[in-house]
Design a binder for these strands. Structure first.
Lengths: 347, 347
DNA sequence: CTGAAAGCGCTAACAC
DNA sequence: GTGTTAGCGCTTTCAG
């Protein structure tokens, strides 16, 4: 059992054991090409024998970047972002990086502050699900300083970085279309956070599809508490142009709707159809099983990490960045029972 | 807009501006007592003027610990641990620490490896929800090296660290008691992962309560897939000593039971009562609302971080560790509808 | 109470 | 190809 706190061997000891100079060892550990294969072998043997590992701190002090990547998400206790974090950390680990995780609490100031902190800690790359709003380009100066940045789920305003997004608009359109095919004409769109890129896109999709079908949009935002949803529902049910279907923009709102509809004894889908953006584990356990628009946090994170690692490698090679990639991931309509009769699909 | 990548001022520049020696600046930044107040003022002014911040790398190289804490959980994509991580990271940030997060994938080897990695990265403290099994004391050598370690949710085998646990046993007893009060006599206990401390404790609680009431235990483990649960349920319903109530040890199993019961058209609670360990968001949205034993990940993480920060401060002061604290957090029975008629409680 | 010197482990730049 | 030198920015000694 080796004690990781015991003074670890230094490059100097390796050099002595291998009977070479310090620099040769350094070159070997850094994969420098100009080392004779026979020499390299000797050094590698010494490294193995001593169990030598580079000292991060010393490398940092010499201006290198840390074998760390930083991840900033709006809310780590949200299962969606937690899944992203899980995947990111898993891939990072496989590539020898540790992961610094921060939840920005949906606060742009905090996000910027933490991003700068990470940058000053010399992380190799930054993965951000931004909470900054369009026009806020405070993250701009982090670019082009050898720090790789990849945005995912939402684009970074004013920043020309790689980004991985989900087809929120198309997903919303598909959802509305599904409702229309089931004969619905008065379809309400509810949720909150309309300033967020993803929600904004979903609203656009809803509106576009409604307009294309010659239907009147009916959008209510700021529905982010159970009370709010309940109250809205009661009003709706009493109104004479009451919708026959609801398209919910947020997971939270979907859940509250489920509760409120049950409370008010509104039957789904007979009295009211419901479709929610964002799939979740229990969607097919609630009654009736909820039809949703699913997106994959794992795939999102996987692609984002892929791009980030690529960037990091390029920067190490000194290659000036290729033009930023923009990747769009599809959504998937999970048809269950909440929009009317349909054969049930296994997840 | 200051550029965090621009060469930052060093201690030398601060010293020059304040017209003192390097050491005086160092003493000020490290809160050393032996600095005359007037001198301290001067230095502080210079620090503020230059926006000086200590260079982590240099401090690390001199053997100090990083302003980082490490967190290892079994599965970051599990909402329970994600909530823990969220809270930990939040408190860490408030105290000037960054958080290194790793998911051990329930793999003891990986956990040990990552813990050592973090230790070698000189984190100030380690927070672990262990996946090691009793008898595995590979983490032992990390102790007493100036690294503060706090275990939570599960104790660290063979390690004499602070730890924060949940009253799993009492929670299970309460659940079983609840079922008994509703007239149930044949109560099955199902789940998986019985080697894990928490599950083990819950099984103990179940058994103790059943025995105390003169009832026969009926335990089935390894029920960690929907298929498995479904099959088990079918067998159970056909058996002549079929249980009238189920105590589910794991969240996953509870969800699968909900699905399987619905599939088999078994009515809850009329045909079968159900109570699950671990509360969740949608517990009162499923039909019928599920009665659960709730534990608070936020409180768990809060207490763990509290203890960890305390340890870290003590170690900085050189105080040899106080004897490890053991804290037990209570569970809370969330009575909803799945065990029989009862007035419904709001969460 | 304050300062000067030494060096943590590494790598960039230059010699050979 | 390979070795030598000179710091990176800080804190620990040890003088004053």
């Amino acid at each position: 059992m080796k004690n990781p706190e015991a003074r670890r061997p230094t490059i100097r000891e390796v050099a002595k054991l291998a009977r070479v100079g310090l620099m040769t060892v350094s070159r070997v550990t850094n994969n420098h090409p100009s080392v004779r294969p026979s020499t390299r072998k000797k050094v590698e043997a010494a490294i193995a024998q001593l169990g030598y590992q580079q000292n991060e701190a010393a490398r940092l002090l010499k201006g290198q970047r840390a074998k760390m990547i930083g991840l900033i998400v709006p809310d780590l206790s949200d299962i969606f972002f937690a899944s992203c974090a899980h995947t990111v950390q898993q891939i990072a680990r496989a590539h020898g990086y540790m992961t610094l995780v921060v939840s920005s609490e949906r606060d742009a100031d905090l996000e910027v502050q933490q991003a700068e902190l990470m940058s000053s800690r010399k992380v190799s790359g930054l993965l951000i699900v931004t909470s900054t709003l369009p026009g806020d380009d405070r993250l701009h100066h982090l670019q082009g300083t050898g720090l790789a940045i990849v945005a995912f789920d939402r684009p970074l305003p004013g920043l020309n970085t790689d980004c991985i997004l989900v087809e929120n608009r198309a997903g919303a359109e598909e959802a509305v279309q599904h409702l229309i095919q089931h004969g619905h004409r008065r379809i309400a769109c509810v949720g909150y956070d309309e300033k967020t890129y993803t929600i904004h896109e979903r609203i656009q999709g809803y509106s576009a599809q409604m307009n294309a079908s010659g239907l009147k949009t009916q959008i209510t935002l700021e529905l982010l508490t159970l009370d709010g949803v309940r109250q809205w529902l009661i009003e709706m049910m009493a109104s004479k142009s009451r919708p026959t279907a609801i398209f919910s923009l947020n997971h939270r709102t979907s859940v509250f709707l489920l509760k409120a509809l049950a409370e008010q004894k509104v039957r789904i889908p007979e009295d009211m159809a419901l479709i929610g953006f964002d799939d979740f584990d229990l969607a097919d356990v609630v009654t009736p099983p909820l039809t949703t628009v699913a997106q994959s946090p794992v795939e999102l994170a996987r692609r984002a990490m892929g791009l980030l690692l690529e960037r990091i490698q390029n920067q190490q090679k000194g290659a000036s960045g290729a033009s930023p990639a923009k990747i769009l991931l599809p959504t998937r309509l999970m048809i269950r029972g909440s929009c009317g009769p349909h054969k049930r699909l296994e997840p």
